[in-house]
């Protein structure tokens, strides 16, 4: 269980570029939750993830993981509990290392790294088995450089690296946004498969409202550094893109007309209905 209590973060404080990214935000993520996070540009979604990871430090508030205060724990130490997949497929892997070497780095996340040989042969079977589950033929490319693989394949490997050691929490930061629609769909399906088979608590940022509704058991909407909408269970299942947009308009009317979130749902607010039908048809 991850318990976030009243965290705040302001970038460029005291300057003309001052930007409140997180504003007294509180949320509790229960074990087994698969939460999708939506919100406009600058709503604080990525900042929230970075705060959980320790990439940025928060100004006040606390972050507790299973009752342990990790607010001031160093990023590398926290990684023991967290699996992460970035938006940029190039970011999650080492291009000049082989698939096997990348996985070998990941399998020791949170463990002491010693002077033992880094790629023991006995681990290879595990990698082959896990890669085969991805169904991308990667199990035959163990010694290939990751840089030779496609964006989708790299993202799938990053996903595997994040979950090879079961994390307490899996953090996905728009991890399909840089992929073409078909590949994105595949990677999302893989995500679902991995998350469900491992029963991994997951926080997934997405800019695609339909995905946010389709995946996960809980949906939160962020605006101006706060969680403005938190829905789960049956209520979430029955959501539609249109209802979500209306909700958004109702809560944060100023943002809707100009925002990327709206555009990336493939719609302008007045055309929401038509496009929603289209979305569900897809």
């Amino acid at each position: 269980m991850l318990k976030i209590t009243g965290i705040s973060k302001t970038f460029n404080q005291g300057t003309i570029n001052e930007k409140v990214a997180l504003n007294d935000l509180s949320i509790t993520i229960n074990d087994g939750d698969f939460i999708t996070v939506i919100g406009g540009n600058g709503a604080g979604k990525s900042t929230l993830l970075n705060a959980i990871c320790g990439t940025i430090s928060v100004e006040n508030g606390t972050i507790e993981l299973d009752g342990k205060d990790i607010t001031h724990l160093k990023e590398a130490k926290r990684a023991k509990y967290l699996g992460r997949v970035f938006q940029d497929p190039m970011m999650g892997t080492c291009a000049d290392m082989s698939v096997e070497e990348n996985l070998a780095l990941a399998v020791r996340r949170g463990k002491q790294r010693t002077l033992k040989w880094g790629m023991p042969k006995k681990d290879r079977e595990v990698y082959v088995e896990e890669l085969a589950k991805l169904n991308l033929g990667l199990e035959e490319r163990l010694s290939n450089k990751v840089g030779l693989l496609s964006g989708g394949q790299r993202q799938a490997i990053t996903l595997l690296m994040a979950t090879l050691n079961r994390p307490e929490l899996l953090l996905l930061d728009e991890h399909t946004a840089a992929l073409d629609p078909k590949t994105a769909e595949k990677v999302l399906a893989l995500t679902k498969q991995i998350v469900e088979s491992g029963n991994i608590t997951t926080l997934m940022i997405t800019h695609n409202m339909q995905d946010a509704i389709t995946y996960g058991n809980r949906l939160i909407m962020m605006n101006a550094g706060k969680v403005i909408y938190d829905v789960s269970g049956e209520e979430k299942k029955n959501l539609t893109v249109k209802a979500l947009l209306e909700k958004f308009e109702e809560i944060a009317p100023s943002v809707v007309t100009s925002d990327k979130m709206v555009l990336s749902a493939g719609t302008k607010s007045e055309e929401a209905q038509d496009n929603q039908n289209q979305d569900s048809a897809e």
Binding site: C53, T55, E75, A76, K77, A79, K80, L82, R84, F86, M91, G92, T93, C94, A95, D96, M97, E101, A104, L105, A106, R108, R109, G110, R113, G118, M119, M161, A162
Partner: peptide
């Protein structure tokens, strides 16, 4: 290996607990 990885992708390294 972690030193080699640091030279290639420090952000990824920190995410992997390095």
């Amino acid at each position: 290996c972690t030193i080699r990885a640091t030279g290639m992708n420090p952000k990824m390294c920190r995410a992997q607990g390095i």
